[in-house]
Every structure is written in structure tokens, then in C-alpha cells.
Amino acid sequence: MRRRGELIAAALAGAWRPDPGTVSLGPNELRLVTPALLRTGAGALGWWRLRNSTLRDDPAALELQQAYRHHALQSALYEERLAQIVAALRDGGIEPLIARGAAAARLYPERGLRPYGDVDVWVRPDSHTAAARAVAALPRLAWLVDLHRRFRHLTRDWDELYERSETPQIGGETVRILGPEDHLGLMCLHMLYHGACRPLWLCDIGAALESLPAGFDWEYCLTGDSRHRRWITCAIGMAHRLLGARLPDPVGSAADRLPRWLLPAVLREWGRSKHYMQSPSMAFSLRHPAYAVEALRLRWPNPILATVGVGGSFDELPRLPFQLAECVSRATQFLAGLPGQPRYKAN
């Protein structure tokens, strides 16, 4: 009997393709994974995958279809708003860079397949204050903007990122997005820093891998720290092994060599009904001890999050030391009263 994580992988395999092929799930299996697909924003992709199958009339499938419709409208609305936000920033002399959500949605056959709940906007650090002011002047849109001043996971400087960026049309506005090499790297690293807790992020990587432009520069994409390079190739390998993404030749062999603990860790994470981003704060849990046990349980870092959290290597060594080190690091931060930014915010 397949576990929930494996079923989610089966439900989403190739889901970013115009014709994702047949889905190998039974009705009971579909009912088991539907809440998780909905909860993690992959409901529309779930419907896309099974819309031509015999499961399409199952009540669980109809919930996924509702998500598909809902996200289609939501994406159309957000594209309009994104265009307005970009126009307002440009009026203030600021050229924003867009990545992840709206930029990743372009990689899918229909924009609603890849929902996003906010617009991640990056501006040069020296423009951040002016950008924050410009965004605050948009009372009906400001809540939607997640304004960043640096790409936490990318080491390149702004000029280089801008130089290699692209300017597609989104929502009727020409929008500047990261170049494909930087965007693939960012999506891989962002997913790992969050412990690969959302299957949608791995679909993004699959979609990106299968829509690489001619002349995609792998050498540039993988330039830099050897540990980062290994992390990126492992993320690519995860998309291949779990979701059937086609491996491009230049990284094929490296991406197919994954540490043994990696895929089980992802499947375990996907099988959980809650992940750390949904847990109560430790400050709250200390005030309400009834929640403390659960808060601590959810905060136990999975091997992926622990490894990247402490800057470790994706090798065959046991992960427990990394997990303990990550816990100590967090506890120290918390006890020092310096929680700072949440780990998963990229500001």
C-alpha cells in the first residue's frame, strides 16, 4: 500500500505538461491525497492531471476542479494587480524584479494551474525605502506585495541579475523577471530552505526544466559555491525521480545521484498533515503549554531543512547531527530573544 507522500507524487507526476498522461490512482487513494493537494496549493494541478480520467466525477475530483476554477480567477486578478504594482513602482523610478509565484506560473500551460497568494517583488536595496512608500500608497494592493531587498539564496549582485533578466508580458504589463538560470537556481534553493514541504515547488522545478530556452547556460546556473551547486542538482534530481521531470543532459548524471535519505525525507514531509510553517509560534506555545508539544514536534527540522539550514552537504552521512545542530541554532536564537526574520522569509 502506497503512503500519502507517494500518492501525492503519483498525483502530480508531469502535472505541468499540456498533456500530463494518465494518473495511476484509485478512488480511495485520490480521496486520501485531495486534502493535502488543496492545502498546499496543488489542487488545480491535481485536477489537470486527472481531468480526462475515469476519476473525474469522483467527489474528491470535483473539489480539485473547484480549486482549478478558483485559481484561474485568482490568477487573472493577481496578474492585473501585479501589473498595477509594477506600474506604480516604475512611476516612482523603481524597476522591480519579479520571481517565484507569478514568474513560475508562466511555465505552466494555464496560469491558474500555479496559484500564488502574494506578489514577490525585489528591488535594489537602495530603492527599498522608496519602494515601500510607493507600495504603501496603494491601499488596495499593498497587502498583496511581499517586498524584498535581496535574493537571500542567490549570491550574484543586482547589476548581474538585472542584466540577465527577461521582460515578458504579465497581465498586460511588461514585467522584469529573473533570467532562466537565476530563476531555476532560486526555485531550487528556496524549496530546499523550506524543507521541500510543498510539492508545488517541485512541480515548478519540473516545469522549468522542461521549458528551458535554447542556449540555457548550465555553467552559469551552477556557478559558485560547490555546496550550492550540489543542492541545486539534487533539487533537479528530486523533480526527476519523484515527479518524472525530464533531466537535461548537462546535469543528468549529477542529478541522478541522490543521497539515500533524500527522497524518503521528501515523501515523509509531503505525507504530514501539517508542516512547520503552520505551527503556532513558540512565544504563543509557551503561553499555552497545551500547544507546546505540537509546536516542538512541528519544529523538528526535516533532514533537508536541517542540512541547508546549517550549510551542510547532501551526502550519505547521517542527518541527525544536522537536525540537532539546526535545533540548537534556532533555540539559541529564540532564547536570546533575537528571533529576527522568520527563516523562510527571503527579505
Binding site: G43, Q74, Y116
Partner: peptide
């Protein structure tokens, strides 16, 4: 959808007027 938590941030109003606990932690 019942649990379309597709977003990575929510407004304060969405948080305080949203569904009953457990809250999302977003």
C-alpha cells in the same frame, strides 16, 4: 477550496477574520 492555502503571506484581516483555529502560521 476548503484549504487552498496557496499563499505565503496573508493580511491581518484575513488572519483575524479567517477560519477558526488552528491558524495557518503564515
Amino acid at each position: 477550496p476548503r484549504a487552498a492555502h496557496a499563499q505565503s503571506c496573508i493580511t491581518r484581516d484575513q488572519c483575524e477574520e479567517g477560519p477558526a483555529p488552528p491558524c495557518s502560521g503564515l
